[in-house]
Design a binder for these strands. Structure first.
Lengths: 103, 103
DNA sequence: CTTATTAGTTACCACAAAGTAACAATATTT
DNA sequence: AAATATTGTTACTTTGTGGTAACTAATAAG
């Protein structure tokens, strides 16, 4: 009856997108690539430390791509990969479902 | 640019379905209502304590309905509400997306 | 009157995730 | 020579979540 618990694709997927700020980060990157600082100021309340770790995890999970330019001060741009873009409609359906929860 | 952070419907929704075992619990109830003990034995690894708290949260969030019968030993049945049933196709799309993560 | 059954509760512990604040690296500008 | 800008890192603390194990209530069965 149970499909295998630790290797359940649903659990895995929720692990990958389930960080406290990750959906917000992914939404930030929906329309265009963004710099670290842009994301930081666009998401009020997140700390740079947490933003870094969640971005790193998203990069590691191949939902987000990181491009660093050898400039000073440094410029680093983040953008969605194809796998990340596939998430957008799914996140939208979750958000639509969750709309009744707000207020 | 940011729609409001703490009242973001996406974050709210993920908060509601994001417990470690909640998607599995919801899947358990997909086909039919089930008793507490049934869910417990069908999800290997979950403890009764955690099952209780996650079920209670699902009930509080109105995704699951609890029906208790005044028998001895007690019988308690859990089933999905309409709001909970609406989640099934969404969970399925997440699982489909997450399939590549497994193995 | 002891045992079994079911659906929990309670107290306590462990670990992971997130938050805070200070520091770092490097070239350009003042 | 000091300040500025940007993208982090580091050490430390706090909070949240889940796990373990023992206990409970109520009645029926032996």
């Amino acid at each position: 009856m149970n499909k295998g618990n630790y290797k359940c694709p649903l659990t895995q997927a929720l692990g990958v997108i389930g960080g406290k700020w990750k959906p917000l980060i992914i939404y930030q990157l929906e329309k265009s690539k963004k710099r670290f600082g842009e994301i930081d100021t666009n998401i009020p309340g997140i700390s740079r430390k947490v933003l870094t770790t969640q971005l790193n995890e998203l990069v590691e999970d191949k939902l987000v791509e990181r491009t660093a330019y050898a400039e000073t001060p440094p410029r680093v741009e983040y953008s969605l990969t194809e796998k990340g873009k596939e998430l957008i409609p799914i996140l939208r359906s979750i958000a639509k479902w969750g709309n009744y929860l707000v207020q």
